[in-house]
């Protein structure tokens, strides 16, 4: 009996974990299900619908309906017609992202290392604008940049702005608006990655003959790269598709691609609007991939 029982033991032991593994597997899928459903309903289906709309015959209308003709020419036509707005969007978003980085890095650095007991208050101050509507905040910039406002007065006073010069309805106003609106999206990831840096690394830098600036350049900046990458992406991507700032603070010569898409949808030109949307998305994906590849974030811990 004992000899017969012996081989059974290990066999049972091997078989035992199997049902448990299967159970664990099910739990995983169950937990994933809501997210999957969300992605399906709010991402996959709209994506399919958007791409197929972009291939409709553009001669149709809401009244007569659209016919699916696989009209790839939509892409070529819209891109050639609106290339100026397209490039302008990329440039405005790029400048605003750079401005956000230049303004946001010192702010995030100060909050992470120098704020002491004011740290939480400063973080709240960064997020506080979100308590007011995006639209209201952008509209208030019309007042700040208006011809009669003190900013323009001062600039005229010191001769930086001509007597006939305006701040409102200029590219500067649009870029300023975008910079303002997306600054928190830059500051928060930057803060998160700076805050993780062990202050002892700064001391180690100082101990190893690096001046504060060299320590910043050789230690702080490389270690904050994940925050820089996340912050620039979170700023650039929505900024490239933004249309509120150009609409409220710009003029017809500052129209961005977001405004074009919105106007086309309003005018019922669904296939063209869809084609432009897909092009913008693809362009952003390509740029982001190239950028991440260049920044080499996977090398960072």
């Amino acid at each position: 009996m004992s000899t017969a029982a012996a081989p059974v033991g290990p066999a049972e032991a091997v078989a035992a974990p199997a049902p448990e593994e299967r159970k664990r597997g099910w739990t995983g899928y169950l937990l994933l299900a809501p997210a999957m459903l969300w992605l399906l309903v709010f991402f996959i289906i709209p994506m399919v619908s958007l791409v197929s709309t972009s291939l409709y015959d553009p001669s149709g209308s809401l009244e007569t309906g659209y016919s699916m003709t696989g009209h790839i020419a939509n892409y070529v036509d819209t891109l050639s017609e609106y290339s100026k707005q397209f490039i302008r969007s990329i440039i405005y978003a790029g400048i605003a992202t750079l401005a956000c980085l230049l303004l946001g890095y010192p702010l995030a650095y100060a909050i992470a290392f120098k704020a002491g007991r004011w740290k939480n208050l400063m973080l709240v101050a960064v997020i506080a604008p979100f308590f007011t509507s995006f639209l209201i905040r952008t509209l208030s910039w019309q007042l700040i940049l208006g011809d009669q406002a003190w900013v323009a007065d001062i600039l005229r006073g010191i001769g930086l702005l001509g007597e006939e010069g305006h701040l409102m309805a200029t590219p500067l106003a649009v870029v300023t608006g975008i910079t303002y609106n997306f600054l928190p999206f830059m500051v928060l990831p930057l803060y998160a990655s700076l805050e993780k840096i062990d202050p002892r690394l700064h001391e180690a830098g100082a101990d190893l003959y690096a001046s504060p600036f060299t320590t910043f350049r050789k230690v702080t900046v490389p270690l904050s790269m994940p925050g820089v990458v996340a912050g620039t992406l979170l700023t650039f991507i929505p900024a490239a598709g933004d249309y509120i700032n150009a609409q409220l603070l710009g003029n017809p010569q500052t129209t961005m691609i977001g405004n074009v898409i919105q106007n086309l949808f309003d005018g019922g030109s669904y296939p063209e609007a869809a084609a432009l949307s897909v092009t913008l998305m693809a362009a952003i994906v390509v740029m982001v991939l190239v950028y991440i590849n260049r920044a080499g974030t996977e090398e960072l811990v």
Partner: peptide, 16 residues
Amino acid sequence: PYKRPVNTVFQSYALF
């Protein structure tokens, strides 16, 4: 500190 001819081995090592 960066001008002193003195170096430190930190408690938590503080390696970069």
